[in-house]
Nucleic acid binder design. Structure first.
Lengths: 333, 333
DNA sequence: ATGAAAGCGCTAACAT
DNA sequence: ATGTTAGCGCTTTCAT
């Protein structure tokens, strides 16, 4: 592979000047600049990333901490994040973490080894050791779609959004409402809070614990399990709020398998508004998270931090919106 | 950040010996080894990846060439590939390519800069320049879920699988069958070949071109467009074969919007058997691609190539299986 | 505006 | 078994 010395030799110039041209420094004569550019073009030379990384003590890589289950929601959000990071000149590398937390150590080790310039966390890590490292190493990072007090983050107001979603059901006349959520993320808890708040305000706060089932993962499979569990407890309800669309999809499956019609017998509301929500039968009513904005904000906020333009203490809030489709209908008790 | 010299100083040993311990070389005395290990543990030292990359002329990274649309099928396959690559000690980095091919140059530049140890291609690049570079640079690579004559690959027999899928419809009594596919990938063409072969064998090969619609991307959205186009041409059919599940989901949406019941009025078959196929209403009949095997084979074949254990000329074929669910039913003309 | 030289953190060849 | 040394490809002083 052709390197900077090869170019220097061909041009009869020192490597230092080649470097200057590559990095767009001003103090190079136009003639030499043109010559070098021509040579680079001809030879197809591309600077060796590893060498630059070493001397500049940067990796030009941003790590994405994400759960290994990597659902449709995360996939969509990632696409937007990636696009913006690329436009800022970063590469992107996944740091997978399993839900049970057993791999958080491995993730930390990979962090130290790869040394990304920054980190975007789409998955909520529990280990305090992890956050200690982030602080100690002063590694720029931002959490997306959830927040951790005192750290930069971009997310919607989960509790308020859940409140609105459940209120939509209440306004349709539903009173006996169930919820499926997960403990994995703090937003699962916040969405549950919004759920209870809405119930409370409507004066239908009965059997608090029986209304809610907590499952392990935000997947269609666990949505199905959760719904089955709720059905075992009681069939006396007319609406279900799922903490994510994936859970809603699984819940709808379980309801259908038991002969319930949606929305005639049971209304279903999801959360996230993933792409497929609009392709389901019936189309799923859901809370829209603005992926494009969240992705862009996460990337550009991180970029600012990395390039030292960080203003400090940002906890960005993205707007959400209830998208009403076919899976919710008037209560017809 | 603590480096190898720091460890050496603390231990009163030369950096070379530290390096030997880190890399598990045998010729180190047990006492020194233990001392070094202890120090590494204490200090939290992790070797600097960039420095190793430079001197070893390796990146310990495998590139994944994937389309920027990055659908559910690719997401699922990627998860398996990633898992295995990690177990072999590789990092993973995406090389996104847009469907229109405009970014193939950028992808090539990134390739030269990052210098991955190998490449797994889930997306079919057209540019011959790209393949020329692969050959010239002798970069190990393998194509997954499609094949390119003369190059290592792992994939199912798309034509045979499509043939079986369509035959399933024919055995159910369907004669007027439509197909939605895409030109983007060669497998879209091969699946169309299987479709026509099955029709031909059943003696229902009429209006060849009208039976098939080609759309731009393998997405739900384009599946919907494709189906609308078919409906515009004629409503006289009883079954649809979609080249991917995503297309099938979009097609089902379009059919439902026009009042068709599935499978009572129209049977639908997909291809890939993505996770969600079993959660749709109705559950989607589909050809199962064995993600776990394809992912494992792709990763381990590449690993063999990288470590010089490549036996040459492998064109691996993975088994497929028709999974019959609820979206296909007897023709009830 | 340009070149010479040092050095980033690591490994490997070569001594001993 | 261990240390010394050179060098991977690049950027960046520091001269000039």
């Amino acid at each position: 592979m052709v390197n900077i010395k090869d170019i220097a030799k061909k041009a009869g110039i020192s490597p230092a000047t080649i470097s200057r041209v590559i990095n767009g420094k001003s103090n190079v004569s136009p003639e030499k600049r043109d010559l070098v550019l021509k040579l680079i073009e001809e030879t197809g030379y591309v600077p060796n990333q590893a060498a630059r990384n070493m001397v500049l003590r940067r990796s030009f890589t941003v790590g994405i901490v994400i759960s290994d289950t990597f659902n449709m929601f995360q996939r969509q959000l990632f696409s937007f994040i990636e696009r913006h990071l690329t436009s800022f000149g970063y590469h992107t590398m996944f740091f997978f973490v399993t839900f049970d937390g057993s791999s958080e150590d491995a993730c930390l080790a990979k962090l130290k080894s790869v040394k990304p310039d920054g980190l975007i966390m789409i998955h909520e890590i529990r280990s305090p050791v992890f956050y200690e490292y982030l602080e100690r190493s002063r590694l720029p990072f931002i959490t997306a779609t959830f927040s951790r007090p005192g750290f930069p983050s971009i997310h919607v107001d989960d509790e308020a959004a859940a409140f609105d979603a459940v209120n939509h059901l209440i306004n349709l006349g539903h009173r006996k409402i169930r919820m499926i959520s997960s403990e994995g993320f703090s937003c699962g808890l916040q969405r549950a809070d919004g759920f209870f708040k809405a119930l409370e305000q409507a004066g239908v706060m009965r059997n608090e614990k029986d209304n809610l089932v907590m499952v392990r993962h935000y997947t269609t499979e666990f949505g199905m399990y959760g719904m089955r569990e709720l059905l075992l407890r009681s069939r006396d309800f007319s609406a279900v709020f799922a903490a994510t669309d994936e859970l809603a999809i699984g819940a709808m499956r379980a309801l259908r398998d038991e002969g319930f019609r949606i929305p005639e017998d049971v209304s279903v509301v999801g959360f996230d508004d993933i792409e497929i929500a609009d392709y389901l039968m019936p189309r799923l009513t859901s809370i829209r998270q603005p992926f494009p904005e969240i992705g862009e904000q996460a990337a550009s906020s991180l970029h600012k931090q990395i390039s030292g333009k960080y203003e400090g203490g940002l906890d960005l809030t993205a707007p959400y919106r209830l998208v009403i489709r076919e899976s919710t209908a008037l209560y017809s008790g």
